[in-house]
Design a protein around this nucleic acid. Sequence first.
DNA 1: CGGGTTCTTGAGCGAACGCTCTAAAATTGG
DNA 2: CCAATTTTAGAGCGTTCGCTCAAGAACCCG
Lengths: 206, 206
Amino acid sequence: MTDTRAKRGRPRTFDRAAALTAATRLFWERGYEATSVGELTEAMGIRPGSLYAAFGDKKSLFKEVVDNYGRSPVGAFIGVALEEEPTAFAAFARILREAAVIYPDPAHPAGCLTISAATNVTTQDADMEAYLRDLRNGNLAVFEARLRTAQRAGELPEAASPRALAAYFGAVVQGMSQRARDGATAAELAETAELALAAWPAGRAR
Amino acid sequence: MTDTRAKRGRPRTFDRAAALTAATRLFWERGYEATSVGELTEAMGIRPGSLYAAFGDKKSLFKEVVDNYGRSPVGAFIGVALEEEPTAFAAFARILREAAVIYPDPAHPAGCLTISAATNVTTQDADMEAYLRDLRNGNLAVFEARLRTAQRAGELPEAASPRALAAYFGAVVQGMSQRARDGATAAELAETAELALAAWPAGRAR
DNA sequence: CGGGTTCTTGAGCGAACGCTCTAAAATTGG
DNA sequence: CCAATTTTAGAGCGTTCGCTCAAGAACCCG
């Protein structure tokens, strides 16, 4: 988008992707509102003018951060698991087990960026709140779609409710993200994942 | 504490408890950092001077709010269930089922104050972050203690881990609170609660 | 009633907020 | 080499932040 290089004018002296990564880490740690533009410019190593020229305002920078996060391995593991695993149970088992490893990983801020940053948005910032809520609720819709497919394939009993199961796993994932933020270890989260999987409806097609 | 009335001097012209309730609602909705003193004074119907005289600074007002919330029916239902129910399963079943009703109740802001407001705290405010994290992790310790008692009473198989179960239910409760904030209905949360209870170890002493 | 005490009011402090502007610097096209 | 274009650095805009303070009002005690 802004990638067409070798134009006219003074070239950019900073690495746009690196600056975005720095911003991601900060937003991930502190959330949207609690991260100031001053902290951002310092972490990104640029001056306010450059930030606004390259990324628009704080809000659009954040949205680009979320977008970028969603394409990164850490942010996309759920979608990947849903696509790659042959059965729904295998997919959700992999999601929870990977979340147990990824969320407390000290290589990056704890928990899920979308889940954490989302809660840090004021009611005043109505559109930002809606943007993030829709992101999370969209995840639930994907869960439900996968479970519905599984039910048609006979992986789930007729009595099971894809919608209810999707809501349940969504709540567990959000809970695990929060627990990671509160200092839960990978070992503890792994136990949580196994217990959560025990809720899978009888006739479990493992 | 500040309750010894009929002292000397000009009497307070506002209802301290009512003001605290107004502050509670605001913090509950927006979280700690996102709620400004200006918004607080307006909602409480008092001027900044009165707020600081009656409650100390913003931080101690918030702690009093959390304290007060923990003593209210909505904030104390978990502890009550753990004490009143004869078996651990009955206690956790009641906790999840009541959470499904209480968290989305439109009579107050969605979710649990401690869980929601907590996530809105910056890393900068280190002691506030620690205060809230300890509150939540303290809840987990209470869960674990109840489950350990249950295991000694033979309600839980030897193989079950009270610590892991406590972490699991803690994550589920936090997840349900967040889902309520994202607009989940009581019906949806009730289904989540039932699914979560299916994780109770075999030989379930219902 | 007068002195002591506490509370209310309203102005406003210094700092931080998101953001903008100007001038200089660095590049390309002609 | 010059004009056009784009980015940089840095000052600083207007607003809001948490919080304080001086002045006056409302009560109790003696």
